[in-house]
């Protein structure tokens, strides 16, 4: 849906000649869910994927008491120009992994933007029709695949499929960068989860 993307690029004060606008690419992604769902990690992989693709990136977590069990969210900006404010007030892409996050942030998504929601945990649909909605039962899929902690990477795979800010090849490099050197064995299982989400058709 290229027309929808152009729509929100315009809103984001991007370069205003048509030629510039076609190549102007800025993704403002909001990952939101419960603490412990791996929200910050999937954000980190996204940021590394941007970095590996020679884009400018920033990653900003929510911090403080909410880190310890409450809601967690993470703002990632991937752009071909230097990142100004690292805060994502109006995401181009929202990854919602629980109901409170979905209801809180649904209305902030830019027109033409994407909402990717874990439909295992969020049974409702968006209240608006000017965005693209992609439900994916990530938690159920993770459970079925016996990788219960990797629902975050399954939904991340879906994000890659719809927003296309990185190729799967770049995503692999990003996962390699994000996994601690002592836990190399996690690379393949993360990629398996990402691919499952990437290939999911719902």
């Amino acid at each position: 849906m290229p027309s929808k993307r152009l729509n929100y690029i315009a809103i984001r004060f991007m370069p205003h000649t048509a030629a510039e606008r076609r190549i102007a690419m800025t993704y403002e992604i909001l990952f939101a869910g419960f603490g412990g769902q791996g929200i910050l990690f999937s954000g980190k992989v996204a940021a590394y994927a941007g970095l590996m693709g020679d884009m400018e990136v920033s990653w900003l977590p929510s911090y403080g008491p909410e880190m310890r069990g409450g809601t967690a969210n993470c703002h990632v900006i991937i752009s071909d120009s230097p990142v100004g404010s690292p805060i994502v007030n109006n995401p181009t892409d929202l990854v919602a992994m629980n109901l409170p996050s979905f209801t809180k942030f649904e209305k902030t998504v830019l027109t033409g933007g994407n909402i990717i929601a874990d439909s295992s945990l969020i049974s409702i649909k968006p209240d608006r029709d000017d965005i693209n909605f992609y439900p994916i039962p990530a938690t159920q899929m993770a459970s079925d695949m016996e990788i219960p902690k990797l629902a975050n990477m399954i939904i991340f795979g879906k994000l890659i499929a719809v927003s296309k800010f990185a190729t799967m090849e770049t995503v692999r490099k990003a996962v390699e960068k994000s996994v601690p050197p002592s836990k190399k064995e996690l690379i393949e299982v993360n990629m398996k989860a990402i691919e499952a989400g990437y290939n999911y058709i719902g």
Partner: peptide, 10 residues
Amino acid sequence: DGMLGQMMEP
């Protein structure tokens, strides 16, 4: 500030 302390950039 808290934002610069917590955020990641390359």
